[in-house]
Design a binder for these strands. Structure first.
Length: 542
RNA sequence: GUGCCCGUAGCUCAAUCGGAUAGAGCAUCAGCCUUCUAAGCUGAGGGUUAGUGGUUCGAUUCCACUCGGGCAUACCA
């Protein structure tokens, strides 16, 4: 429907001068009686052409050429809205398109020649993924799915750092546990990694090597084994919620390949850095940021900013059209420095899209659970998946805008897992599957010749929703707003459940029954496509 | 102190470049299964969109200030 409106307005713009170059937006009104679509174009134009908006609206309608078999009626309402009422038969025709395109219905080719990189999770291998990482993981994967849906060729990348103090502490944590197993009476340092998984790794090493590692350096085998095991677990956890990466990028390679040194030289040559108090500083104030920041400490070690810039340069070298970074809000102060530096080095930072999601607050027993990997008082993503399952976890993390803080009440999540909205969606899909099974036994099948019989409110509302699918997916993807897909699917499911209650299939007149079967198939297809973008199962039975 | 994000029904959250009567779920109350899955449907109650001012045909949305919450403000990552 919207496509048709766009077409006829494009044609109109050739004749009405003041419509040229104006982007006309068509909305779906909230209220009955205001048409299937409406536009406020006349209201906006009235300022430009200095005429009464209703007069402008009248002029537009009078010059508009359209097919009366598609648009039944056009009205001017309120201060100057133009409301379009579509023909019911035309609305029902959408079923044919859905069924014909099937899995690709709602896809867009708008970005089909583009390549995107989505970097997410990027947690260092110091411990199991927590619920906090879960939100990042699910949002990142869903954003990648959405971009693929609108045509992008997408790579998923995990950036990590296996050097530095954190990892040294990790290696030593394992070593201390190992020494304890050997019977040494050592007090385990408070600021070391307290988690049980450290003991498990130490035990493994003891089982394999006995006491031979007592003299081993903590940065050697201890660290290497810890990293390997922890990554294995992270991978396993992510796989449980259907997340896989194309590439793991090790920060360390930036050093070994001389990228860090090269960047340092470039910054110096371009006069973007200077030395002070034994450290190297980046001239961020000249680039419009608040303060200069240290990029190499007086000890000679770089701060995170330097490798971050080098890493992004590497991304640019790989010729992506779009680079999405996904961070938790605790990183909100770090990326402006990196972007400023890249810009100063003449990279097109418009291609970098930084998404910041707010935190997940975990509530348990009415109290906020403070999380720390070091202290091991976190709730792991694995535990959460054990409790509620992959679908609920995924849905929970994307159903809200990423700008909203997410309140995750564990008690409710466990208790209400049966009432979770995700089941509402899946139930609609399963119900249709069930109908289709029953219908087969009755020797009924979908018929696309009498779709005009689908004229009731329940049927028409459902059909109109199907029309919106492609636009909604495109809008969600272009704005990186996965929660909109969840909202759309909830609305679609609600309309279907209403249709199900009011419109019977078995027992009604054959032509109508078979048209309704066609509608069911179309709804099921859209539901399945939407669920697949969100990485959710579309069950045939529940 | 400063920067970013947030403040919407009892609770958790929506609301399409500013649109017409601000919507869902949970909770509460009242109904609907001898017929395709009741994990469903129908109805009721519940709102000064934190507050004050501004911009305009029109503000939950934009601007300013105030109040409240989260995160960050390192030669930690």
């Amino acid at each position: 429907m919207r496509k048709y409106l766009s077409e006829i307005f494009e044609t109109l713009a050739l004749r009405l001068d003041y419509l040229k170059g104006i982007n006309i937006v068509f909305n779906v009104p909230n209220n009955q009686g205001q048409g299937d679509y409406s536009t406020n174009a006349a209201l906006l134009l009235s300022k430009i052409v200095k005429k009464n908006p209703r007069e402008v609206a009248n002029e537009i309608i009078n010059s508009l050429e359209y097919d009366k078999n598609k648009i039944e009626k056009i009205e001017i309402a309120g201060p100057g809205f133009i409301n379009f009422f579509f023909n019911k038969n035309f609305i029902a025709e959408i079923i044919k398109e859905v069924v014909y395109k099937n899995e690709s219905f709602g896809r867009s080719q708008k970005y089909s020649s583009k390549r995107a990189l989505v970097e997410f999770v990027s947690a260092n291998p110091t411990g199991p993924l927590t619920v906090g990482h879960g939100r990042n993981a699910v949002i990142g994967d869903t954003v990648a799915n959405m971009l693929q849906w609108i045509g992008y060729s997408v790579d998923r990348e995990y950036y990590f750092n296996n050097a530095g103090r954190q990892m040294r502490v990790l290696g030593d944590s394992v070593k201390q546990r190992y020494l304890q197993i050997l019977g040494n009476d050592i007090e385990f340092p408070e600021d070391y990694y307290q988690g049980e998984y450290i003991k498990d790794i130490a035990q493994q090493l003891f089982d394999e090597y006995g006491d031979k590692l007592a003299g081993e350096d903590c940065e050697g085998l201890f660290k290497a084994r810890a990293e390997k095991e922890i990554f294995k677990d992270i991978d396993k956890t992510l796989k449980r919620i259907s997340i896989e990466f194309n590439n793991y990028f090790n920060e360390h390679t930036l050093y070994t390949e001389g990228k860090i040194e090269g960047l340092l030289n470039t910054l110096k040559e371009k006069n973007l850095s200077y030395e002070k108090e034994g450290a190297v500083w980046l001239k961020l104030t000249e680039l419009g940021n608040e303060a200069d920041k240290v990029i190499v400490k007086s000890t000679g070690e770089p701060t995170y900013r330097l490798p971050d810039v080098a890493y992004h340069m590497n991304k640019f070298e790989r010729k992506y059209d779009l680079m999405v970074d996904l961070f938790g809000s605790d990183h909100n102060a770090t990326y402006p420095d990196v972007l400023a530096a890249l810009k100063a080095l003449n990279y097109d930072t418009d291609k970098v899209k930084v998404l910041i999601h707010q935190f997940v607050t975990i509530m348990s027993g009415g109290e906020v659970v403070k999380m720390s990997t070091r202290k091991a008082n976190y709730i792991t993503l694995d535990e959460l998946i054990d409790e509620v399952g992959s679908d609920v976890v995924r849905y929970f993390f994307i159903m809200r805008s990423i700008a909203s803080h997410l309140n995750f009440d564990l008690d409710i999540a466990k208790k209400q897992s049966d009432e979770n909205p995700v089941f509402y969606l899946q139930y609609a899909h399963a119900r249709i599957a069930s109908i289709l099974r029953m219908v087969k036994e009755q020797d009924l099948k979908a018929d696309y010749e009498n779709l005009n019989l689908l004229a009731s409110d329940e049927e028409q509302n459902l059909l109109k929703k199907l029309h919106l699918f492609e636009d909604e997916m495109l809008y969600a993807a272009e704005n990186y707003e996965a929660h909109r897909i969840a909202n759309y699917l909830e609305e679609l499911a609600a309309l279907f459940h209403r249709f199900y209650t009011e419109c019977r299939i078995i027992g009604t007149e054959k032509k109508l029954a078979e048209a309704r079967i066609a509608l069911c198939i179309a709804v099921q297809t859209v539901m399945r496509n939407g669920l697949s973008i969100l990485g959710l199962n579309a069950p045939d039975k529940m």
